[in-house]
Design a protein around this nucleic acid. Structure first.
Length: 239
DNA sequence: GCAAAGATTTGCT
DNA sequence: GCAAATCTTTGCC
């Protein structure tokens, strides 16, 4: 396989994100997420996203209106919205639609195409920083588990994308459409279009219908890097 | 001020 | 299949 880290496809045009979010989601499948440049650069194809559209979307962080945490969602398109979930995982979103309209795409899975070794190192570093509280044995278990992972599973979940690309809250608000940015988006390879399927979003059982059922998860069917999603509700309602 | 839950992942039963 | 880990934000007193 050739080194695609140098053969870039060009910066991702902001106007493709300023439109309605469902259209942007389809364009984002196959687009590249890039961190750094040259020999230490990391690049992958986005193969799974979820759309969160407007303050009226009761599954979205924007449902409470503008807050300190979600401020980036209310900003211009092409900017990163990064948040902490469950106290330990960071999630990367790409802001869409016009400024003041709160909408974004959650990047749920990336297929590595360059810099897989660097992603693996970043995953191990991330796990070590967390496992250090649980002793050396836990640290060692995590390291050997990550070393055994197939390259395609290094960024197959929203928290894992951020671990593999070293993304944290410091990246909140940065411009992903700026080609000079260390963390940035690039166009999809036109010669290699990917099929797109849709389904309901994951982990939003707290939201009422119709939001819970909206088919706003977009993914490449059969792609090995797509995240494994819980198949049903994990909490049962008391009788 | 304080309790509760969350756009997740991992490990154990 | 289920619960723990871990901390910010929200919602209510």
């Amino acid at each position: 396989m050739s080194d695609l880290r140098i053969a870039g496809t060009g910066p991702f045009p902001r106007r493709l994100l300023a439109t309605d979010t469902e259209a942007a989601a389809r364009r984002m499948i196959g687009a590249r997420l890039a961190r750094g440049r040259g020999a230490a650069g990391r690049v992958g194809r986005i193969v799974e996203v979820e759309a969160y559209i407007g303050e009226e979307d009761l599954a979205s962080h924007a449902r409470f209106g503008l807050t300190k945490r979600n401020a980036a969602m209310f900003g211009p398109p092409g900017v990163a919205y990064v948040y902490l979930v469950y106290g330990m995982y960071q999630c990367l979103n790409i802001v869409t639609e016009a400024e003041s309209r709160a909408a974004a795409l959650l990047v749920r899975a990336v297929e590595p195409i360059g810099g897989g070794d660097e992603m693996r190192e970043a995953r191990i570093t991330w796990a070590r920083d967390r496992a250090c509280r649980h002793g050396k044995a836990a640290e060692e278990r995590a390291r050997s588990r990550i070393e055994a992972l197939p390259e395609g599973r290094l960024a197959s979940g929203p928290g894992l994308v951020c671990a593999a690309f070293s993304i944290d809250r410091a990246a909140d608000g940065i411009d992903l459409c700026d080609p000079e940015s260390d963390l940035r988006l690039e166009l999809a390879d036109e010669d290699d279009p990917l099929p797109v399927e849709t389904g309901p979003r994951a982990g939003i059982d707290y939201a009422p219908d119709p939001w819970r059922s909206r088919p706003w998860r977009f993914f490449v069917p059969g792609n090995a890097s797509v995240s494994s999603v819980p198949l049903r509700s994990r909490r049962q309602v008391a009788p």
